[in-house]
Design a protein around this nucleic acid. Structure first.
Length: 332
DNA sequence: CGCATTTGACCCGCGC
DNA sequence: GCGCGGGTCAAATGCG
């Protein structure tokens, strides 16, 4: 099963300010649209006339409807995610015996060459398949294919948005990684970094991180294999120290939109939280606490977004200008 | 001093 | 067999 995080859950907040008045000058238009998006609508004075007021109310209604739609979409996505996660757990349970054998083989041969290791792992899996399977020799081809599927390490891609100037190639996913190499590949001028799980050789998981050739602000992390140990943040939660809330076993930090600017939500970023809160939140995404946490995360992400900051600054400065103008008109 | 990162060298698979 | 390119190793280096 390949897990590719190409879902676009981004809200595209204010990347293109909404046009309110078609004939309004650009500067004014941007400021006013920002007012609406940032919730300053109530403070906009009615001095500009009833026509504009009506337009603003209409816009507010439109934005409210859009917000409702987005909320529904988010709910559906959460449901889908929960379903997929359950399916993953079921799948894992079904294959736990095979995975255990493969992991044991991987540990015992950690110092051998990769080829030999792969051969041993595959033979361990093959033995298991053969032992468990009652298939006759006529099914050899299909069982071969099955084996090949087992041998293939699980590969998943995660896309993360970072500062384009940030050259660290670090994708925060909660796990600890040790960098063991960096290469410049032919198809992409930006270097590719190679990481191993810090639990290696016990944990065979590797990841490759490289900036997207299309958008330098996006880093693509390719994960190979599955961790055979609990998520560090989970382990910490059980052992007493708190760093982050995890939303499942797969990294859910990122999204990518292939077209247009997006805002990426990083749900794995560490956040101070009490043990009790964590217990209450885990596994109940509909809980008000979770939703509050989710909103906090979104707010945190938004405040880190330069576009959002610029929009906020524009809105605030616009607000002050507006107030000054009003004061002047009142004083005159 | 120990650990993580860097980086050049090396290995290996693949296409010609 | 050779060259190319991706992936890995391991000595050197940096940092806390």
């Amino acid at each position: 099963m390949e897990f590719t995080s190409l879902l676009n859950t981004s809200l595209d907040l204010n990347s293109k300010p909404i046009r309110i008045l078609n004939d309004a000058p650009p500067k004014q238009e941007t400021t006013e649209s920002n007012f609406i998006e940032l919730g300053f609508l109530r403070n906009v004075p009615a001095a500009n006339g009833n026509e504009e007021k009506g337009a603003l109310i209409e816009e507010l209604n439109r934005v409210s409807a859009e917000n409702k739609k987005l909320t529904e979409m988010l709910t559906i996505m959460c449901e889908n995610y929960t379903q997929l996660r359950n399916q993953l757990f079921e799948y894992k349970n079904d294959h736990s015996v095979e995975n255990t054998q493969a992991a044991a083989a991987a540990i015992s041969i950690s110092n051998k060459r990769r080829k030999a290791a792969a051969a041993e792992i595959s033979s361990a899996i093959n033995n298991n398949v053969q032992n468990n399977s009652e298939s006759s020799s006529s099914d050899e081809d299909s069982s071969k294919k099955q084996r090949e599927e087992h041998i293939k390490p699980k590969i998943s891609r995660v896309l993360s948005r970072t500062e384009a100037s940030d050259t660290s190639l670090i994708v925060k996913d909660g796990y600890q990684w040790r960098k063991y190499g960096q290469k410049v590949t032919r198809d992409n001028p930006s270097p590719r970094a190679y990481f191993k799980c810090s639990f290696a050789p016990t944990c065979p998981v590797k990841k490759k991180v490289q900036r997207s050739i299309e958008d330098q602000s996006i880093v693509v992390a390719t994960y190979e294999g599955e961790h055979n140990h609990p998520h560090p943040s989970k382990a910490e939660a059980t052992s007493g120290s708190n760093r982050s809330l995890t939303l499942g076993t797969v990294p859910c930090s990122t999204t990518l939109s292939s077209s247009g600017p997006t805002i990426t939500l990083d749900l794995t970023k560490p956040k101070p939280q009490s043990q009790e809160e964590k217990r209450n939140l885990r596994g109940n995404i509909n809980a008000p606490e979770f939703q509050q946490y989710f909103v906090e995360q979104m707010a945190s992400t938004l405040t880190k977004d330069p576009n959002f900051k610029a929009a906020l600054a524009a809105a605030i400065s616009g607000k002050f200008l507006q107030q000054n103008n009003n004061n002047r008109t009142e004083n005159w």
